[in-house]
C-alpha cells in the first residue's frame, strides 16, 4: 500500500541525518586543526554544549523549566574531582561515567519533587535544590575545599594511554568524543517513541495522558537522563581544568545555561551546540569591553531576545544559511526550525 510507505518515510524522515548535520560535525572536528592554539576555549565550548544539551532534553523536549540545573553539573564536577583527588577511581573515562551516574541518582530522587505541581513550584524546587547543594558544599568545606575548591587534582591518562597536556589538546578531543557520543544517544532518544511522548507531554499533558502516556513516569525518566548528562558535563569540567569549586552550583551558571539554550533554540538538539559557540563569542566580546559587568550584558541579551521574540530571532538567524542552501541545493531549511514553546 502506498500510504504505508508514505507513513514510514515521513516517520523516519525526522531521524534521518541531514547533510547540514554531517557538515556541522565535520566543521567541529576540523576546528581542532584550524585553531590549534585555542584548545582551551574550544574545550570550554564543548563542555558548555554538553551541559546545554542536557537542559534541552528537559526544557526543549519535555517543557520543564529549571532554575537550578547547575545542581547536577556541580555534583558531577565534585564527584569527578574527589575521585581523582583521593585516587578512588583513577581512570578518567570510568570516573566520568561514575560521576554521571551519581548525578543521575540525584536527578532521579529529586525528579519526584520537580514533576509535582505547576511551573512556579518547579522553579522554586529546582532553584532550591541547587542552593541546598551549594550550602552543603560550603558546610562540608573540609571535603569540598569550600570557596577555594578542590586543590591539587591530578588527572591520570585517559584509558591509561592519553595524558592530559598543558595545551589542552587531549582534553579537547576527549570532550569532543564524549559530546559526540552523548549527542548520538540523545538523538536516538528524541527520535524514539519515548522522545515523541515527551514532545506530546510538553504540548499538551492532558491529551498525552488521555491517550495512555504515563506522564509522570516519562518526566521522571527524562529528568534523570538529563541529570546524567549534566553530571558528565560537570565531570568533564573538573577533568579538563583540574578545578572544582563552589561556583559550580551557582545560580548564574543555571541562568547562563538557559541563555545559551535560547540563543541556539530549543527542541532540536543543535540549539545547545550552536548556542554555546555564540555565547562564548559574546562572552569574549563583552569581556574585552567591560570585564566586570558581564552580568549586565547577559541580562541585556536575555531581555532583548525575549522582547524580539525567540521565534523571530531564529528566523533571522536562519535567513542567511537558508539563502545559501537554496542557492546550492535548491531547497530550504538547514536545520530543523526549533519548535515553538507551547505557552
Amino acid at each position: 500500500m502506498n500510504a504505508v510507505s508514505d507513513v514510514s518515510s515521513h516517520a523516519i524522515a525526522r531521524a534521518r541525518w541531514r547533510p547540514a548535520e554531517i557538515a556541522f560535525w565535520m566543521l567541529a572536528l576540523s576546528c581542532a586543526f584550524l585553531f590549534p592554539s585555542r584548545y582551551l576555549i574550544m574545550t570550554d565550548i564543548l563542555r558548555l554544549a554538553l551541559f546545554t544539551l542536557s537542559l534541552d532534553l528537559i526544557l526543549g523536549y519535555a517543557g520543564i523549566v529549571s532554575l537550578g540545573h547547575a545542581a547536577f553539573f556541580g555534583v558531577g564536577a565534585y564527584s569527578a574531582g574527589l575521585m581523582a583527588l583521593h585516587g578512588i577511581i583513577n581512570e578518567p573515562v570510568i570516573a566520568l561515567v561514575v560521576a554521571g551516574l551519581i548525578a543521575m541518582v540525584l536527578g532521579f530522587l529529586t525528579s519526584f519533587l520537580v514533576i509535582r505541581g505547576v511551573d512556579l513550584t518547579r522553579l522554586m524546587v529546582t532553584l532550591g535544590i541547587a542552593l541546598l547543594l551549594e550550602a552543603l558544599a560550603e558546610r562540608f568545606s573540609n571535603i569540598t575545599g569550600g570557596t577555594d575548591g578542590l586543590q591539587g587534582i591530578e588527572m591520570q591518562p585517559i584509558l591509561g594511554m592519553f595524558a592530559f597536556d598543558m595545551f589542552g589538546k587531549t582534553g579537547f578531543f576527549y570532550s569532543l568524543i564524549v559530546l559526540f557520543l552523548l549527542f548520538l544517544l540523545a538523538r536516538r532518544i528524541v527520535n524514539s517513541p519515548f522522545g515523541l511522548s515527551l514532545r506530546a507531554i510538553k504540548n499538551n499533558p492532558l491529551r498525552a495522558s488521555a491517550i495512555g502516556v504515563p506522564v509522570n513516569r516519562r518526566l521522571i525518566a527524562i529528568y534523570t537522563v538529563a541529570a546524567f548528562y549534566a553530571g558528565i558535563a560537570g565531570a568533564l569540567f573538573t577533568q579538563t581544568t583540574a578545578l572544582a569549586s563552589l561556583d559550580v552550583f551557582a545560580f548564574e551558571r543555571s541562568a547562563d545555561l538557559m541563555l545559551v539554550l535560547v540563543i541556539g533554540g530549543t527542541g532540536y538538539l543543535y540549539g545547545g551546540l550552536i548556542g554555546a559557540v555564540v555565547f562564548k563569542m559574546l562572552q569574549e566580546l563583552f569581556q574585552t569591553i567591560t570585564p566586570q559587568y558581564w552580568l549586565f550584558w547577559i541580562g541585556l541579551v536575555l531581555v532583548v531576545i525575549v522582547l524580539v521574540g525567540r521565534d523571530r530571532m531564529h528566523r533571522w538567524a536562519l535567513w542567511l544559511p537558508n539563502l545559501i542552501i537554496r542557492q546550492i541545493a535548491g531547497r530550504k531549511a538547514v536545520v530543523a526550525v526549533p519548535e515553538s514553546d507551547a505557552p
Binding site: 538557559m258 559587568y293 549586565f296 531581555v303 525575549v306 505557552p343
Partner: peptide
C-alpha cells in the same frame, strides 16, 4: 503577559542581572 512562562522567566532574570550589574557599577 501572554507569553510562555519560559519567556517570562528569561526576561525577568535578564532584568535582575542588569539591575545587579547596574547597582554594582
Amino acid at each position: 503577559y501572554t507569553r510562555s512562562h519560559l519567556d517570562q522567566v528569561l526576561f525577568t532574570i535578564g532584568l535582575t542581572f542588569m539591575s545587579v550589574a547596574a547597582v554594582d557599577y
